[in-house]
Write a protein that binds this DNA or RNA. Structure first.
Length: 287
DNA sequence: CTCAGTGTTCAGTG
DNA sequence: TCACTGAACACTGA
């Protein structure tokens, strides 16, 4: 779900739809202050209304809207967050991915607020943007300098922005005694990598998720690096459209509950918990 | 009814 | 202090 490719797909569509427009109205969910951390709904509206969108920027799984005045809203989609967009007419449409939830029947009210709406922007051309999040792990914060304060300042390398050479990555990974799976999910090293990307990359790298960082050779780290770039670039290229991912990816089978899932090549997929996260991997291939 | 889970943070352990 | 583990967070649906 929302990992780097999904967030990048969101960023692209927001930039395309919002650039140059003015925010005319901000409507936070009144029961949901948690989404804005400390700020009240009134403060959020006052801070954002009237400002004009310059661009939309992403780092790791965070993205923010750069306005012509501070502060700027920083978003994290959590596990189930989504951005939905509606033109002057029509319905709200998700920025990426398939339908994840059975949507409740719409009445007149929900026509203006899609299901699980936490925040809605109305723009100067009539476009409306909604931040929706059924499980409420998503976050929106008002920030002066996103890159310079936590949590964004603490992120590691972003594969699409400043991914390091194999040697630098090797020096980093070899110091860690944790399982590879946990290292890949560590945002202070690999910003934007999430559960499915980590599993996909380990599969294509032919590396077991149990391998410790200390056990890797420079060659293996180089392989891991290439596969990570390949998976991320491909997923971003198709705008996180899951149906367009290559048939050889285990992604397609990882959500299946069936214990005997197999890859497109007929290899058995094993599901187990590693570092507290569900992991799908192929022992026949990954060593 | 129970429980797993896409991500992050924080308390606890070694 | 560092590094790592696991629980908590809120909610849906299997």
């Amino acid at each position: 779900m929302p990992e780097l490719p999904e967030v990048e797909a969101t960023r692209l569509i927001l930039e395309k739809k919002l650039k140059g427009l003015r925010i005319t109205e901000v409507t936070p969910d009144r029961d949901d202050h948690i989404v804005f951390d400390q700020a009240s709904p009134e403060e959020v509206s006052a801070a954002l209304e009237g400002a004009r969108v310059r661009k939309v920027v992403r780092r790791g799984k965070y993205f923010w809207i750069e306005l012509d005045r501070k502060p700027w809203p920083v978003f994290h989609l959590g596990m189930t967050g989504h951005i939905e967009i509606r033109g002057k007419t029509g319905r709200f449409k998700k920025a990426w991915g398939e339908k994840l939830w059975n949507e409740p029947k719409r009445d007149d009210f929900s026509e203006r607020f899609p299901p699980f709406c936490r925040l809605r922007f109305a723009m100067s051309d009539g476009t409306e943007i909604a931040f929706t999040d059924p499980r409420r792990f998503g976050r929106i914060r008002l920030v002066e300098l996103p890159l310079e304060e936590p949590p964004i300042s603490k992120l590691g390398f972003d594969p699409l922005i400043d991914f390091p050479a194999a040697k630098e990555l090797y020096e980093l990974v070899r110091k860690r005694r944790a399982p590879l799976k946990s290292i890949l999910l560590d945002q202070s090293i690999f910003a934007g990598v999430g559960n499915w990307i980590a599993d996909e990359v380990l599969y294509h790298s032919k590396l077991s998720p149990h391998r410790l960082g200390t056990s890797l050779s420079p060659k293996e780290v180089a392989q891991l690096r290439l596969k990570l770039l390949h998976v991320v670039e491909k997923a971003v290229h198709v705008r996180a459209d899951y149906n367009s991912y290559p048939k050889t990816w285990i992604f397609h089978r990882r959500w299946g509950k069936d214990a005997d899932a197999i890859t497109a090549r007929g290899e058995r997929i094993v599901h187990e918990t590693i570092g507290g996260r569900t992991t799908a991997w192929v022992p026949a291939v990954q060593k």
